[in-house]
Each structure stands twice: as structure tokens, then as C-alpha cells.
Design a protein around this nucleic acid. Sequence first.
RNA 1: GCGCCUGUAGCUCAGUAUGGAUAGAGCGAGGGAUUCCUAAUCCCUAGGUCGCAGGUUCGAAUCCUGCCAGGCGCACCA
Length: 574
Amino acid sequence: MRTLNPLGICKEEVMTSLAKVLAGLGYDDVKITLDTPPENLGDIAFSCFSLAPLAKKTPQKIAEEIADKISFGEIIEKCESSGPYVNFHFNSKKLAEMTLKGVLELGDDYGCLPQVDRKIILEHTSANPTDKLHIGRARNPIIGDSLARILRKAGFTVETQYYVDDMGKQAVTLAYGIEIWDKRPADDDSLGPYQYASKAVSENKEMETTRDDWLKKLEKGEPEITDKVRSACARVMDEDIFLSLSRINVAVDKYVYESQFVLDGSVDKVIAGLKESQHCDEEEGAYFIDLMPFRERKEEGKFFFQRSDGTSLYATRDIAYHLWKYEHCDDAINILGEDHKLESEYVAVGLKIMGLEKAPEVIFYSFVSLPEGRMSTRKGKVVFVEDLIDEAIERAKAEVKKRREELSEEKVREIAEKVAIGAIRFNIARVQAEKKIVFKWEDALNFEGASAPFIQYSHARASSILRKAKEAGIEGYENYDPTLSEHPSEISLVKEMASFPETVKECAERRSPHTMAAHAYACATIFNQFYRDCPVLACEDDALRKMRLALVDAGRIVLKNSLFCLGIEAPDEM
RNA sequence: GCGCCUGUAGCUCAGUAUGGAUAGAGCGAGGGAUUCCUAAUCCCUAGGUCGCAGGUUCGAAUCCUGCCAGGCGCACCA
């Protein structure tokens, strides 16, 4: 696949030119870092403060000397000092030529970086299959799926995995709940079998014993119980979770069932391996690893990996999963709620003891709470993804109808779905993972300002111009002249588009989907300014109109590609 | 109590990786733009002790220390 990174090429030229001048002036081994100057001062800046002590001159003086000696190239058109800074100006026509040509040629592939020979398994969501997805958990697939899309664009081979917890207490509790559901008291107000069984088990010793007995049988692989638990989990997966995920545009490559690692004996191997460790100890029949030697500040801690009844624990099985995972990838990234930090440490320590020198890189996200406090399925204080989607679509439909009375019901629905899902995804993707989110309907359903519909609208505008050009019989933009771009709004659009591959790179390196959201929004803003300032169809100059048409198409592509990285559809009309 | 995370405009957030030019957006508030490609848009105005206090530095929202406030965790749960 061909790739192009216009801003990267420009930076490269600046680096080369700068390195040559610095060497000539006697500054050896200087680490060059480039900045972005404030508006109108140039495209790339180099600050000279760090050179001042070496040269025993003022940074201003150094900047002048450097700026004087910089040789111009294909891209660098002007270089001048401004106080302690050296500011580089790019030849905007050259940049436009390179960028427009590249974007239009590469289309959907624009923004892709050269293929990297590295496979990443990115695990996300992995919500327990005991209930429908609620918006707290929805943060996980949205971050995970966006990151997977970004990493793929950055050249990595990515497989996404959902680890289905069909083992352990919660899964058994669900299966047990289904078993006793029909026999529950008439006045019981549980929302479902899982809630009912959790409550029943905590209030009734006999029921708790039965449930725990099921758990032992499950670990031994007893067919009757295994079937019950697996089918209970499978039902929640199929009927609830899988559907919710696909509605928000999330497709997981592989669902990995936890029970697999118990049944194939790999969990036993992990237990045996951990028991051999010098840091393993035993307490009333249960086994644990002493965490102190593994901790930087030598704090106390115990990681229990086998219960006194011989059954395994979640982290133990997770270690088995990760050993298997690493047989199929170079790197592992996990998206987890911040409540999993400790468990994650258990897994890392366990893997180390098992002789693996790698540990998964984990992105922890903070909880989504409701204005009235923490979400709680049991107390009914919860907003399900399904309900959020339905509400968002209804709202979006009303917005579409308000503007487009002539559209068919079907078309309205189609647009409304794209807008609604986009609004939900963007609203969550735009905030960095560590920040906690308080869910508010008015934010989640926001269709204005910094929102997906804002960006989608710019895309629709671009598509609409292209469509209208065709309808009006205006020929395409073949043989357009990119050097005709002179208007400041044309130039900033070009520069914004030129930076897209660098943005992909940055988002991938920093594992930062929210940066992509910011970029997509910035791109739409700049496109809107261009739209305001530069008439396209009404442009009387044929050559200029052609070039602008090309700009519109390229803008459309970049907007679409940035939305794609966030799993948001780009409608051609709204 | 201990560990990790967060604290930036009335509200929601960027900016912190790699210290650098007047700290940027959106919402909300006030004002303005539509004989013109979709006004889900655009423009202008007001609004900031970057949690607090020290420190490092020519220079700190960004690095270090202490403190305060909130979240999460500290299970033979997952």
C-alpha cells in the first residue's frame, strides 16, 4: 500500500537543514525538537534557549545566526528569527500540490502509515456476560475500538479480543439464577436472574452452598453444570452484548472464552508454576504469591491464586489467557476499568513468574457515574447502552425532520442512526480515559459544537457540493492546478489535511483516541471556515473552481478518514 | 491509613509525553451574519490566583516536594 505523510516530509526537511546549520555553527550533538509557532509566525519553530549556555550568546543572537544560514529547499520557503525562535515557513503551493495529489490518490488509505511488522492483540470490553451493557462499560469498547482502528491505520496488525468470563462466581451465579428464576417469590422485583440469584445467595446459606458447589463442578468440567453456565453466558452475549456492540459500530475479531483455559488444563499449569515460585506461600490451604519483592517500594501484598477448596481465581485464569495470548502476538494492550489496577498487577507478576518477560500494556479508564452517584444495576440506578441508542436515534430523527421535510422516513432513519451513534461515540471518545465522566443526557445527545454531528455536517457539506457539481454538469477537477490555492482559508485547510498522518502517528504512539477526536473537530472547523470564505460552485474562474472542487473532495476524504478512526459514519447528506 | 488516578473560564474539556512566544475550544451569557454551495454553520464581546504552598529553572499549567478536595482500589469477587 502506498502511503504519504506530507507534514512528516516537511519536518524531515527542516530537521535535515537545521542539523546541517547547527553542525556548521559548532553545536554538536544537539537534540532537535520542533515546536509549532503561534499563528502567522510560521509553520515550524525551533527554539534556541538550550543552545545559549553552549554558545555563551543570547538565544536571540543564535536564532539570527541560524536563520541566516538555513538553506531553502523544496518545502522551506522562508526562514526568519523572531526573538529566540527560528521560524520556518513552508511553500504553501508545494505543500498543496503534494497534499492534494496524495489525498485524492490514496482516498480511504490516506493517513495510513507504512506497515509495521508487529501484531498487537488489543483486548477490550470483556464485560461479564451477566447483564446488558450499561454506559459505564460502554466506555471500554469505544476507547478500545477507536484505538484498534488508529493502530491499524498506523500500520500495525491488530486483532481485537473480548475475554468472555464464563467461569467464576458471577457466571455461575447467573446460571444458578436462571435455574431458580421460576421459583422466586411473587413479590420479587429483581430485574433478572443474575440480580435475583446474587440477592438470594447472600441471604440464604443453603443457596450459597449450592451455588459454590456448582462452581466446583464447573472447574472440574462436569458436563451438566458446564453446559448450564456456558449457555447462560452465551445467551447474554448473543442477545444483549453482541447486539449493543454492533449497534455502536464495534466488531470484535475474537471472543475468547475463559472456560477454555480451565478445561484444557492450562490453568492447572499456571497454578503448578506459581506454586514452584520461591515467593509462593500458603495460608489455611489457599495459595498466594508474596507481592512485596515485585513492588518497587516493597509494600506488602498477597496475590491469592488458588482457593482452599482447590478452585482457581480470576487472575489465575487471566494469566493462563495471557500466556496463550502471547503465543499469538508481539504486544498486548488491554482496556480496563480503573478498578482492575490491582488485578492487572497480579497478572503481570504471574506472567513474570511463569517466565514471560512481557506484560500487557494497560489503558485504564475512570468510571462513568450518574449525577445521582455511582451506577448500580442492583439499585436500578443504571443507563443501558440500548436505551441510550434508542433515545439518541429518536432525538436525531427529530433534528433531521426539522431540517429536511422532504426526506422519506427511511432516509431520515438512516441519517438519524449515523448521527445518533456518532454523537454517543464522539462524546465518550473525546475525553481522555483517566478522566471520570458524569453521564448527562444533554451531553450524550449533544448535536452541536464539539460533537460528531458537527463533523458529520462538514462532511455532508463537502459531499453536497460535489454532488451538486455533478448535477449542474460541471465537469470534475481533472487537471486542477493545486498552486492556485492562495486564500488563507484554502491554505489552512491544506495544512490541516497535511497533518493527518502525523496525527495518526501521534494518536497511535500515545494510545490516545481522544486526540483523534480533537483533530477531527479541528478539521471540521477549518473546513467550515473555508466553506464560508471560498465559494466553489459559484466561483466564476474555471481554473479556481476546479482547484476548489479538488480541495472539497480532499477535505471530504480527510474528514471521513478521521471519523472512521473513531468508528463514526460519514453521511453524504444530513 | 496505604497505593494509583483526577483537579485549567459559570459548566464540559484540550494543552502536561519532550518546560518556551499573548493558556485554547465547546456549552451557557451578550451582540451580529442567511438575495450566496445545508445556519447541525460562521463572526465579535465578556469570562482564568491553571486546587493550595514551597522548590528547581533564564523560563513552570507542564518537572520535584508537601498539603487539600474528589474518584478507584487495598477479598480464598470479577
